[in-house]
């Protein structure tokens, strides 16, 4: 039985990186006695796959991990057990059975919602939302993308699906996944460079709100797939 778990990650847990969150979940599932399936072979490991890594420093209300079970357990019991074994900052929000033909979370993602605000002392003296509207009205939003090996100019406009907000909070829906992976700091970076200013690495407080998949041309949240186990 395939199961999708939705969880939030906040507070000091934002300092725990993706690999350690994976380790954390392995231990959490064992502590909670969830009947998770293991791979076969000399060193069996839990069958588990996360939708999308979250950068260190970013909080989230919409993280997903898919697992496989050997036995049935109700969603209510599983959520109760998992949360009673959780630390502050990680909370299980849902535990749903997936249809057998469901694509795993990681392979199917296409977009994510973010909420971006400014850390105290780093507030800009211009309206980011207004500048964003302005640059979005143009043909392209080009940014310099640096990797370890090279630098390249990338147009991120096609990856910005929607945005709204005010001077305090900006809500973004951006493309993610293997084709075009847009991070909120890229969008805000473009706003800052329009103002001939540089975005400080500590300026943004980022919170992921949701992750989406695409079915028949429409975006739906990963949580819309599957059903509670009763």
């Amino acid at each position: 039985m395939k199961v999708r778990i939705k969880f939030s990650k906040e507070g000091v847990m934002k300092y725990i990186g993706h690999l350690d969150i994976m380790r954390y979940f392995q231990k959490l599932l064992r502590r909670s006695d969830i009947p998770i399936a293991y791979s076969t072979g000399m060193s069996p490991h839990q069958i588990m796959s996360f939708a999308m890594p979250l950068s260190i420093g970013v909080e989230s209300d919409g993280e997903y991990v898919d697992i496989e079970l050997t036995d049935r357990i109700t969603s209510a019991i599983a959520i109760e057990r998992l949360n009673s074994n959780n630390v502050d900052g990680i909370k299980i929000l849902s535990f749903k059975e997936l249809p057998d033909n469901a694509v795993n979370a990681m392979a199917s993602i296409c977009a994510a919602d973010y909420e971006v605000s400014f850390r105290k002392g780093y507030e800009p003296d211009f309206s980011c939302i207004r500048i964003l509207e302005e640059i979005y009205a143009g043909d392209k939003i080009e940014i310099l993308k640096k990797t370890k090996k090279s630098e390249s100019i990338v147009d991120i406009k096609p990856g910005i699906f929607s945005f709204e907000g005010d001077d305090k909070i900006i809500k973004l829906c951006v493309s993610c996944g293997s084709v075009l992976n847009i991070k909120p700091e890229m969008v805000l970076g473009a706003v800052y460079s329009k103002m001939n200013s540089e975005l400080n690495e500590f300026a943004l407080l980022i919170r992921r709100k949701e992750i989406y998949t695409e079915t028949e041309g429409t975006r739906i949240s990963l949580n819309m797939i599957g059903a509670d186990i009763l």
Partner: peptide
């Protein structure tokens, strides 16, 4: 993570 505590 060395400095935040909060472990199980």
């Amino acid at each position: 993570a060395r400095y935040i505590g909060n472990e199980v």
